[in-house]
């Protein structure tokens, strides 16, 4: 309980309401962006006003313009759309993927999920045929026989070989954790051509190991609980025990981890845009707006607006994550 003390603001009354209010405001701006009566459209250079300070005489740019004449207010609002769309989407997808993989790995481990050998034969034959390795027709026949054996013989047939789920998931997390996330994302972004969808995929690919490790560790504790043993003793199928009984409990730590993971993804996405590696420059983004300040060193408003928005959003998310957590935040 003491651990929520690190944030002084946390103890202030209404901190939670403040954080939720800010996040709701950002989300509302993102959702309503196209409907707002903005004086200028995003990504439209106004060549008469280059790098104008906010509220300057004779210009309707309330928050000023960047060095190529784009309206900061419009870029901020449409940048919120990008931030919410990409960061929130990536966080939700990565958390869901991590929870499923980590939950499965923690529940079945390396020996829990056993598959009868005809099913292995069917999968092997199908794979062989799909890859068009030599002797593909024979493999197809083998796959058919294996499938028939699985369906007819069912569980009675002979040996069952385990699927090493845990080793697979842990190996994948170790692989993705070998270098820092920013370096990995930069390397991947240099390798693959990046569209917004591609960036989302790269972020999800690099972000799922965190929740997966968390849920796996929680699942190891949950499977030792009596209620899971009771559910098994009732004769429920393992998949049902996993989905209905064990997984909801193992996912509890995610309530704390999700806001923190969203905050780190938001920082990562804006860092990429700032470096000019992530999204194409015509997509409005807070990070990209901050990046334009480098060419115009006197333009404090180019740092203050997006930097402040980023800071408050990340602070709010971190506060929500910490305030709920029972232990020290990870």
């Amino acid at each position: 309980m003491k651990a929520s003390a690190p944030i002084g603001i946390a103890r202030a009354r209404g901190g939670r309401a403040l954080a939720l209010g800010w996040l709701a405001a950002v989300a509302a701006l993102a959702a309503l962006g196209p409907l707002l009566p903005l004086a200028y459209a995003p990504a439209q250079p106004d060549l008469a006003h280059l790098a104008t300070p906010p509220l300057a005489a004779g210009s309707a740019h309330w928050l000023g313009t960047d060095p190529s004449g784009r309206d900061v207010l419009a870029e901020m609002i449409f940048g919120a759309r990008t931030a919410v769309g990409i960061s929130l989407g990536a966080a939700v997808l990565a958390t869901a993927l991590g929870a499923l993989l980590g939950g499965a790995a923690g529940f079945w481990r390396n020996h829990g999920w056993r598959v009868p050998w005809p099913a292995w034969a069917a999968a092997l034959g199908a794979g062989w045929w799909a890859l068009a390795l030599p002797g593909a027709p024979a493999a197809l026949v083998g796959a058919g026989l294996g499938l028939a054996g699985t369906l007819l013989g069912g569980p009675r047939w002979g040996r069952r070989w385990p699927v090493p789920l845990d080793a697979g998931v842990l190996g994948a997390t170790a692989l993705l954790g070998a270098v820092p996330r920013l370096v990995l994302v930069v390397a991947l972004a240099g390798t693959l051509p990046l569209t917004p969808g591609g960036l989302l995929a790269v972020l999800v690919l690099t972000a799922w190991p965190g929740p997966a490790r968390l849920v796996r560790a929680a699942m190891l504790r949950v499977t030792a609980q009596p209620f899971v043993a009771a559910a098994r003793a009732l004769g429920l199928p393992a998949g049902r025990v996993w989905w209905r009984q064990a997984l909801p409990h193992a996912c509890l730590p995610l309530r704390t981890a999700f806001p923190l993971s969203l905050a780190s993804l938001l920082a990562l996405e804006s860092t990429l845009s700032f470096l000019g590696i992530g999204l194409p420059p015509e997509v409005p983004s807070w990070g990209h707006l901050l990046g334009t300040a480098r060419t115009e060193p006197t333009a404090w408003w180019l740092v203050a607006a997006p930097g402040g928005a980023l800071l408050f959003t990340i602070l709010a998310l971190q506060y929500l994550g910490r305030a709920r957590g029972p232990g020290p935040a990870k």
Binding site: I7, L311, I314
Partner: peptide, 22 residues
């Protein structure tokens, strides 16, 4: 001090660096 550290932790590095540079 703890509040300042938490605030600093929330600030992405590129915002901090740009701010200091400017």
């Amino acid at each position: 001090a703890l509040a300042a550290l938490a605030g600093l932790q929330a600030l992405p590095l590129f915002v901090l660096a740009t701010g200091l540079l400017l």
